[in-house]
Design a protein around this nucleic acid. Structure first.
Lengths: 192, 192
DNA sequence: AACTTTGTTCAAAAAAACTTGAACAAAATG
DNA sequence: CATTTTGTTCAAGTTTTTTTGAACAAAGTT
């Protein structure tokens, strides 16, 4: 059993600003985002940051994120960088404050689009190039039979790529009713 | 400059069976799969194993995978376990051999279904449970305004979950023309 | 039954990914 | 212009994930 003075040694978030620590519901909602982040290959810290913004009724500053999540400035800085790049958070100007404040993107469609554009499309693009290179290598193959087989498999791969491409606009359409490219964000509604 | 006897120390794949090493096109095609594996959060070795099977004109045995990919038995064993579980490879009986032989699943639709069933659905399921827990926590929230806001966000999250659920059958349909659940694999055609 | 072949398991080693914090840059303030 | 505030960068530390290989189990052979 622990000594009662252990209270003083306990590593426990210390209230420093006017928006301290996390409530139970916030903690578990953030947990949901941490898991979701893991699922799509993003680090925990990014899930935490987006999660806290998602919970918050108002835009949060860099410092508030550091304080309430109890993670380093470095993590927050890098995390926000990625989230900005994904379009998952937006800078929000707060009058009378020099600090950057952030709001979460709440439209699932835009979140998905950001993710696809940033993490998927590049691979699809470079992928197409790679398949062409393979095509060239196959020509160097010795006997006819293996060349034929190799080309066959390459064809399969190309069809997979193509189908993935075609899938994306469909997913976007189901998610929100507009086409994938060249759509400027509709401005503030409670479109989720 | 290296001593010429270094040749004897060089770690270099040694031909031991009748199907040695990898050709140029195989190497780069395997590379494509290694990248794809990374994209969906699977380790390199799994990409390599599936990739080599995908390249091969015939079923390959455990040993052939170890030899040609130059990776450990442990990696191959664990990798095949995961691939089997995903339905990405199938055991293939070869008369006159005691060894297990494997063939790759070549239907994109089945590959995607396996991945979703194994890696996504579980999270969606447990996710629903988690949201209900959050609901309970929110009730403990002090003031009315924050409770309202919290419930609002929870609602958003629920709608995201639901939309994800609805998306899956649509994706499967686009990929192959049949519904997601309760569909027995159509037997051998060259359906890709 | 002893031996061989085939494949799995799991603890330890290696590699990769993530986080931290101190040094730094940029811009606002006095 | 010196100082403070705010945020970024990056090398080093930490944690997590992946790979390895030796020991083991299961099943087939002689």
């Amino acid at each position: 059993m622990g000594h009662f003075l252990d209270l003083f040694r306990m590593k426990m978030p210390v209230k420093q600003s006017d928006t301290p620590i996390l409530s139970a519901w916030e903690t578990s909602m953030i947990d949901v985002f941490v898991r979701a982040a893991g699922l799509i290959g993003l680090p925990r810290s990014i899930g935490e940051i987006y999660g806290l913004l998602f919970c918050s009724p108002k835009a949060l500053s860099f410092d508030e994120l550091v304080e309430r999540l109890q993670i380093s400035k470095g993590s927050v800085s890098q995390g926000l960088k990625v989230l900005r790049q994904l379009g998952a958070v937006k800078l929000h100007y707060v009058p009378g404050s020099r600090r950057d404040h952030y709001l979460p993107e709440l439209s699932m469609k835009r979140l998905v689009r950001g993710f696809i554009k940033d993490q998927f499309e590049p691979h699809l693009l470079s992928g197409a190039q790679r398949l062409d290179n393979i095509d060239a290598f196959i020509e160097e193959e010795g006997d006819e039979a293996s060349r034929a087989h190799a080309l066959n498999r390459l064809g399969t791969l190309r069809s997979w790529q193509q189908r993935t491409r075609k899938l994306i606009p469909i997913v976007m359409a189901v998610l929100g009713g507009a086409k994938f490219f060249d759509k400027e964000p509709t401005d503030e509604e409670t479109i989720i």
